[in-house]
Design a protein around this nucleic acid. Structure first.
Lengths: 339, 339
DNA sequence: TGAAATGCTGAAAACGTTCCCGGTAAGGTT
DNA sequence: AACCTTACCGGGAACGTTTTCAGCATTTCA
């Protein structure tokens, strides 16, 4: 069942059928109707390969993400995938190992060749302009923006929260509750620039509140691994360092932290408050409910896709969207005990 | 940069380059080496579309899943995607709304046409042979097997756990701890046959242990929504029904249940034990740690892909893999209070 | 009414592969 | 020495589209 069959079926030429299928003008209404009917009756579906071949333009959008282990990324992928399909494109998902970088992504582009654009999801993003020039298609970064490297702002698009500011807000929230000795739990800087940004926000907030930064209260884990966070917090407790609150740079880390605190006999929030950034669904069902700054995941993913497609279709230029988080008050933050 | 350029570059014909690229014999070793070198030097990558067009055979494998909201599905997708790429194929992910059915999947197949096979992930699967005959490519069901419909066992493959038996085991575990009044928390039967199977296992286990089934202890939620589970368990508690344990048919439901119990002032496991089936990573960090029967997600996903590709490549026939779960002892199960 | 413009359609080239088929050269057999 | 096989290679058709171009029919304008 090819376009030729359809053409023969309703006595027109292949060109005409093609025109109808591609919404070209230049075709009389009655002919168009006849063709459409024929298409339906024959159950014809165009061959994507042929289409892509001749127009040297596929419908494929690359989505590269480092792992999907983080539930927050999963939720992004979910709506990214949905939106891409809704808008008539195809998603090509590519996971890269944690330590790999854009060379992989470029290689992917080369291989698939026909990618129309790329969405980068999560992870670090400190590439230089030279490195990224390998990408000849537009790309948008979801959840992070470039703050290192020398990449020009009009070379790409991004959708993210202001990580520093949001971490700052989280600290503010703790300070407002009377906390002064606030530990921070972040992942390996090598893995993600996001953790670093949030860490900077933490430092800044401390400074503004006149609190000295105590390196002993900084716990760095490897990756987003909850086990590492759990162990890190256990070590922190065992070290005897005094702290009344923890800022976790992601919900998963916070959940592991709560577990560690509980296992060590500290009650949350009575003995220690915990606040996080991300806003996973599941965090609303932990015991106690996690207080967290919710990223508008749905919105961010949706916007990323829309921006990329705007770029692909020529409408719209590179932009950098900064989203606001929403504080979801849980039960994990309280005033410190009046010791 | 086409195959023609490569051919010209090293002074052979297009056919020869093609032969080299496709590992055909009939080409002298030195020529092969020269071509390979040329390919590398030119940075040539074959055009997938052209390749798919002429061989009328793409590299696309469809993965249809109803939503990715369930973290267990996310973890499956993650490794499915990875394996598919590792084996040189391309994943086409398609999420269907919860209420949609295989008609969608079939439509997808029609559209993309060139799918080599399909992996169904999660959800219900009670289609008849007639319905599924629309699928002209092999498919494998991951996480569930057909127990309804009249579909012949050699018409498809599956990788799953024995849901009834595992639920049975979960109940056994509770009974071994002295529980007799066991509530069950399951999702909407319309959404998933898995819940139904596990429910059957629950019923069977009760019977074998000489426990009367009490419909009042059955909580049905809509979808995997944690909110529905939370509310359901709250209602159960408020109804005054007596129970000392809950079997949740998934980890997420269990987490919501624990939350509900805690919020209603019941301590887990002192006042009520909770056991679940799935084995999410995060369940190891809840308070208390969830006791759950872990499905070998990695293995299941990996096997699904391998089986499908076996089917596609002609080696191997339809099989039905039944995996074993592993009990991960948490802190959510204890002997009931001796009231 | 004739010429020019316009609207619509069809023929055919092109996209980059794969693969069949025919051809040449080398080696083996009679 | 003539023939046959074998191993290897190149030519060219085909895959199913899109798109350019030319052509015909119809309208519009002078």
């Amino acid at each position: 069942m090819t376009i030729k069959d359809v053409a023969a079926y309703c006595g027109v030429s292949v060109s005409t059928v093609s025109r109808v299928l591609n919404d070209h003008p230049d075709v009389k209404d009655d002919v168009r109707a006849r063709v459409l009917a024929a298409v339906r009756e024959c159950g014809y579906v165009p061959n994507n390969s042929a289409r892509a071949l001749v127009s040297s333009r596929s419908t494929a959008i690359g989505v590269v993400s480092r792992g999907l282990d983080n539930p927050f990324l999963s939720s992004l992928i979910r709506v990214v995938s949905r939106r891409i399909h809704e808008l008539g494109y195809t998603m090509v998902l590519h996971q890269i190992p944690t330590q790999a970088d854009e060379v992989q992504a470029a290689a992917l582009l080369q291989r698939e060749k026909k990618l129309l654009g790329v969405i980068f999801l999560g992870g670090r993003f400190n590439y230089t302009e030279a490195e990224l020039r390998q990408l000849t298609v537009p790309f948008v970064c979801c959840t992070y923006t470039n703050t290192f490297g020398d990449l020009s702002q009009d070379a790409y698009s991004s959708v993210s929260i202001h990580d520093q500011r949001e971490a700052h807000k989280a600290v503010d929230h703790l300070v407002a509750h009377g906390h002064r000795r606030i530990a921070v739990l972040l992942d390996d800087p090598a893995d993600s620039s996001i953790g670093q940004l949030r860490f900077q926000g933490y430092r800044q907030a401390l400074e503004e509140h006149g609190i000295d930064y105590d390196p002993a209260l900084t716990v760095v884990t490897a990756g987003y691994a909850m086990q590492a966070a759990y162990e890190g917090v256990c070590r922190l407790i065992d070290s005897g360092a005094a702290f009344t609150a923890i800022l976790a740079i992601s919900d998963t880390l916070a959940i592991a932290a709560i577990k560690a605190l509980t296992d060590r006999g500290r009650s949350v929030p009575a003995d220690c408050s915990v606040i996080a950034i991300d806003g996973l669904d599941i965090s609303a069902y932990t015991v106690p409910t996690l207080t967290t700054l919710c990223q508008p995941a749905e919105e961010m993913a949706s916007q990323s896709v829309q921006m990329l497609i705007g770029l692909i279709e020529g409408t719209g230029s590179h932009r950098h969207l900064l989203m606001e988080t929403a504080l979801r008050q849980g039960g994990s933050v309280a005033r410190p005990a009046a010791t």
